[in-house]
């Protein structure tokens, strides 16, 4: 979280809303630990990461959906045998659970 504060502040100062995804739980082998965070601005700018680059693209899409109201805040799961909407897996074979929300607090 610490490493993405400057970007978040810059976007918010420019009047943009921001969505934040945080790793809240992992199972099996996964590259980032709980607390790894990523922020996405309304214009699709990105700061931070939540995996080794495996799922960031899908997270940006989900974050933009949360910002536009097409998706509600909550946990998204990415994993090897993921039957969620995102057909994206972690190359390392683990599962990560992200909590995604609009930064409105």
């Amino acid at each position: 979280m610490r490493e993405i504060l400057d970007d978040i502040d810059r976007w918010r100062a420019a009047g943009q809303r921001v969505a934040v995804a945080r790793v809240v739980q992992t199972e099996g082998s996964s590259p980032r630990e709980p607390g790894a965070a990523m922020a996405v601005s309304e214009t699709g700018e990105v700061a931070g990461s939540v995996s080794g680059g495996c799922v960031e693209g899908a997270v940006v899409g989900a974050a933009l959906d949360v910002l536009s109201g097409e998706r509600t805040r909550g946990v998204i799961t990415f994993g090897y045998s993921d039957d969620e909407a995102f057909a994206v897996g972690l190359t390392c074979g683990g599962t990560i659970h992200l909590y995604l929300e609009v930064l409105d607090w």
Binding site: V24, Q25, S29, S30, C92, G94
Partner: peptide, 9 residues
């Protein structure tokens, strides 16, 4: 075995 130690909640 696993490369990353699982961090379980």
């Amino acid at each position: 075995g696993p490369i990353h130690e699982p961090v379980s909640g």
